[in-house]
Structures are given as structure tokens and as C-alpha cells.
Nucleic acid binder design. Structure first.
Lengths: 190, 190
DNA sequence: TATTAGACTAAAATACGAAAATAGTCGAAT
DNA sequence: ATTCGACTATTTTCGTATTTTAGTCTAATA
């Protein structure tokens, strides 16, 4: 990692801290600069706008979720079990992240385009992961109600259902039994 | 239906029209009164507030969705097919309603409590319907991955996943194949 | 008596301009 | 190549005057 990347990382770490404390709207570029121990205009040397910083930080945080989930499942062989573990892991991780960045709800309004863009990127990357898992399951002949030809759309639909579950489960207290039922429903059916 | 109920219905019909045109925030009590051909204070004789009118109208509209879906499935015997048909029907109907009342998105902000309350009522009624269908399927031994003891939580989880799907499918063009895949996923698994 | 409307009030939304805060630029310094 | 402080152009905030609107009350009417 060269100097350029190092400073960029440092700024991102600082930005994460202040974003987690104040949210997107309430944190100023000077807050970030102060936290990073740099002058404000230095930030503009590395990022073109506050939005870009936020987007970079958010995508990075979401990538961590994917990474954790993918690590958690790499030792599992059965495609069905793999899928269950993946869904459970992402839901749990996401819940934690949303807890940390509890502000995002308030920030959505007024930054819809930015948030949509971030969510879109994450959805696409998750869809790709799911597609690969589905492909693997089909190859090993472990999925009997899914047809090869539906693979792409199925991955897309799965993303939608997982998002729905995340939204729904966020509203209430931790209930790992519900997460368990949900993943079983999605993978095994009724 | 006595006179009292008749007038109430007439007001609701008028309210639906103006709500569909202007949304909750932008329509005034005088708009509704004008559309209904009554004086404003007459509305207060039948409803205690604008919010109450909106809630009544919204619940009524949502009840229609349930009713339509339940009618559509009453001739189906197999619990699994019944479940699939129910999910497809509610998603399709909901999509249409949201198309008509396209404003609600903008009205959520600033009326969160009211909207939450309405959504809650609808979720509960849908959960009840789903619970009954699950019970029936268990009785007939058609569900093999669901346990009796999980029935209540499963119904709750299903509501969440259906909401997620609705949200997700609203964003894109009609794709009945995706709805089909989704229902099959939920009922048959992968 | 049940229902309606018009006048009225209190509260909320809106409009607007001045003042303050903030995003983003630029040239000089290192 | 990197950083900063001074500067500008936008936004946001804020106070206030004005208008709109929800909701009440009383009298009229059918």
C-alpha cells in the first residue's frame, strides 16, 4: 500500500467514526478533516466530494459483510446448507452494521439517489454471489424445484426476499429462531 | 345500510378520489367535502379527523385486496397450491393499488405513525390468514419441513418475506415470471 | 332529533429575506 | 506530490409575517 492509499484509508477510518456518530447530513467536511488530523482541502485531494467519501465508506462496510459471510460458509460443502448459512450470516451482520450506523434511516430522505446507488451496487454484488451458489447447487443436483433456465431471475428474487427479511427483522428484537425459520423456508420450502 | 352508513360510504368514496389525486398531505378537508358535495363540518359529524378518514379508506382498500385474494384461492384444495396462489394474488393486487395511490411514498414522511399503524393492522390480518393456511397444510401433512411448534413464527416470517418481495418487485416492470419463481421458492424451496 | 352548514379560532404550513454555516476552489508553501 | 489557509459560491438556518387549514361551536333546517 503506497502513501496515497494509506492516507485515503486514514481518511476513511476517520470518516467512518464521525459518520457513525453524526450521520451523513450532520457531519461536515471539517468534522472529517479534524478527526483525520488534516486540513479540509486535503480531503478534496483524495475525494471529489462528501458524497464520494460516504459512498466509498459505505461500500467498504458492505464489502466487509460479504467477505465475512463468504468466509463463514467456505468450509460448508452442501449447497443447501451453504445457502442457509450465507443468509443467516448476512442478516446477522447487516443487523449489526445498521445498529452501528443507526442514523441512516434519517439520512435516506434527501439523499435518495446516493443511497439508492449504494444499495444497488451491494444488491448486484450479492446477486452475483447467490447466482454462483445456485449454479453450484444445480450442478450437484441438490436443488430439485429450481430450473437451470431460471437461475438468473431466481438469484434476483432471492436478493429481494433477503432484503425484505432484513427490513422486517430489524423492526423487532433479535429472534434467531425467526431467522432460522426464514432461511429454512427459503431453502427447503414449507 | 342505514342513512348514517350511506353518507359515510359516500364520504369515503369522495375521499378515495381526492386522496388518489393529491395524496394525504395535499388534500384538505374542504377538498373532500367539496368532492362529496357536503360542508366541511359535516365530515366531522361522521369522522373525528382527517387521519381517521384516511385510515378508514386505506384499511378498506387493503381489505379488498385480502378479499380478492381469498376469493381467488377458495376453490383450490392443495395447501401448497393455495399458498402459491395467495402470494401471487396479493402481490399482483398490491402492485395495482400502489399504482393507483402512487403518492403514498411521499406521504410516509411526516405521517409515519399513521402509516405504521395501518400497515400493522394489515400485516396482522394477513398473518392470521397465513397462519390458518399453514395450519391446514400441517393437518393434511403436506408441509414436510415446517414443524407444528413453529407455526406462529413462520406465519410472521412469511409476512415479512412477502412484504420484501412486494417492495422489490414494485421497483421494476411487471415480471410475472419472477413472481412465479418467488412463490415457488417460498413454498417448495430451492 | 338527526343532520348540515357558515362563522370562528387555534394551530400549522408557507413564504421570504437576512444571517450563518458549509461545500468546494485556488494559489502559495513545503 | 501533498498540504494548508484564505476565498467564494451555495445551502442551510432562522426569525417573522402571512396564509392555509384542521377542528369547534352555534344556529338553522328537514
Amino acid at each position: 500500500m503506497n502513501r496515497d492509499e494509506e492516507v485515503k484509508q486514514a481518511i476513511m477510518v476517520a470518516a467512518k467514526r464521525v459518520f457513525a456518530k453524526w450521520g451523513l447530513n450532520k457531519t461536515t467536511m471539517e468534522d472529517i478533516a479534524g478527526e483525520a488530523g488534516k486540513g479540509k482541502s486535503t480531503l478534496y485531494y483524495y475525494f471529489k466530494s462528501k458524497e464520494e467519501i460516504f459512498e466509498t465508506v459505505a461500500i467498504d462496510e458492505l464489502n466487509r459483510i460479504s467477505l465475512k459471510a463468504c468466509t463463514a460458509i467456505e468450509t460448508i460443502d452442501s449447497p443447501k446448507d451453504k445457502m442457509k448459512a450465507y443468509i443467516t450470516a448476512t442478516i446477522t451482520e447487516m443487523k449489526q452494521i445498521v445498529g452501528i450506523y443507526s442514523f441512516i434511516k434519517g439520512d435516506i430522505k434527501g439523499n435518495k439517489a446516493l443511497i439508492d446507488n449504494i444499495r444497488n451496487q451491494y444488491d448486484q454484488s450479492e446477486e452475483k454471489i447467490l447466482r454462483e451458489m445456485l449454479r453450484q447447487g444445480l450442478k450437484l443436483n441438490e436443488f430439485n424445484s429450481l430450473k437451470e433456465i431460471e437461475l438468473n431471475k431466481a438469484a434476483n428474487v432471492l436478493v429481494g426476499m433477503i432484503r425484505g427479511l432484513q427490513l422486517y427483522l430489524f423492526l423487532e428484537n433479535e429472534d434467531s429462531e425467526k431467522i432460522d425459520i426464514a432461511t429454512r423456508l427459503l431453502v427447503d420450502g414449507l
